[in-house]
Design a protein around this nucleic acid. Structure first.
Lengths: 208, 208
DNA sequence: CGAACGCTTGAGCAAATTCAAGTGCGGTGG
DNA sequence: CCACCGCACTTGAATTTGCTCAAGCGTTCG
């Protein structure tokens, strides 16, 4: 019976290759909206530096971040020509946008990127739907480390609140779990937003 | 500020139109595997009748169903040429398969279906990550009703266990919430697997 | 220097899970 | 045709996990 494949196998990085109508990079300050739910969706965005959050809100303000996008990754996929989600810069972020395919045929590259997003979203569903707080945080840390080159020490651009809204937890629970992992010597918090994975093996064991 | 758009706006139905290499329908008995995680993915499937569940397992057996597919809907999208999930027939099910696009260009239709799947998955993430048990069940019932033609009375092909694994709840919680909705006169359980929405308005109010 | 903000920590609480009986329906066989 | 069996579902009680509320800390910035 199946083990969960590492998220690393589905990186959504892409070479900007044969994508049409590429624009020069645009800078977005931390917290700035990139697009809003309901707006027409006609472009894709490639992260040059920084980070982006894609999210949705409930009427009472609850927020679910469905994905973060890091340098090299492409986002902006939406169905029916309009955005179903919000996109914001998590921190100072540079984006390069390019035209979505239109017409009867789409470049295979677009489809592949969309499919990788889909796999990622569905795998995240497993984390949020069936894993406890420690498992969620462990999976998050491993994913972030992996997507930033697999180094043991790395920065996380996002706040505890962003992490909570991504994992379906409160900021207090995020904080408590990080403290506990630190107390157990699994990770080291070099600074608030810099993590060192001291015991990758232990973390991996916790993540499932 | 944004309200959550109804799931109905992103049906993934499709006319089999210009899709290549369409095969005659294949029958799958309840519980039968359609494909497994790790298998090569080269075909798409259109549900003719019945229902399909797409899921993933954790090592200890916890299961997350990421989607159900109902008649008229298409599934089988996977990245990198292999399946990252399992697909099983929920009940007696007829499927028609056809070839995935290959080569440099993909039919727009494929991209659109994949994108609608993506939006659906991300919206489901909001339900699982940020809504309580009552809200999840209400959203599920409304979604099922909507996808079966919007009638007030409809069958659900799936067991309580399937529903729980889809919504990130235990079967006991699913059962309790359904009982409570029945006690409040919001729904009527015509039989175990047949639901009548008596107060659609109330149910909609509960779903967010 | 003080205010603001993001984060941490603690205590009590509530929602959902776990564990444990029951109930009822559908199917099988006497 | 009815009785029985099995399985899915329901219901209850106790427990646990994560949330809420509240206070305190530390860094940054005006």
């Amino acid at each position: 019976m199946p083990a969960t494949a590492p998220l690393s196998t589905i990186r959504s990085e892409v070479a900007p290759g044969r994508l049409a109508d590429v624009q020069p990079p645009v800078f977005h300050a931390a917290g700035k909206e990139i697009y809003a739910q309901g707006e027409p969706a006609d472009r894709l965005y490639r992260v040059e530096f920084g980070a982006v959050r894609i999210y949705r809100l409930l009427a009472d303000g609850r927020r679910q971040i469905s994905a973060f996008y890091l340098p090299g990754e492409v986002f902006g996929f939406e169905a029916d020509g309009s955005h179903h989600f919000f996109a914001e810069a998590v921190c100072a972020t540079g984006l390069r946008s390019f035209a979505r395919a239109s017409g009867d045929e789409a470049p295979r590259e677009h489809l592949d990127m969309a499919l990788r997003c889909l796999v990622r979203a569905q795998e995240h569903l497993l984390v949020v739907g069936r894993q406890n707080a420690v498992e969620r945080i462990a999976a998050f840390l491993l994913d972030m480390a992996d997507r930033q080159g697999g180094l043991e020490q790395f920065d996380i651009a996002m706040s505890r609140s962003d992490i909570g809204d991504y994992l379906g937890l409160t900021i207090e629970t995020v904080s408590r779990v990080l403290s506990r992992l630190r107390a157990e010597g699994v990770i080291r918090l070099v600074s608030l937003r810099t993590v060192e994975i001291v015991k990758p093996r232990a973390l991996r064991a916790l993540s499932a």
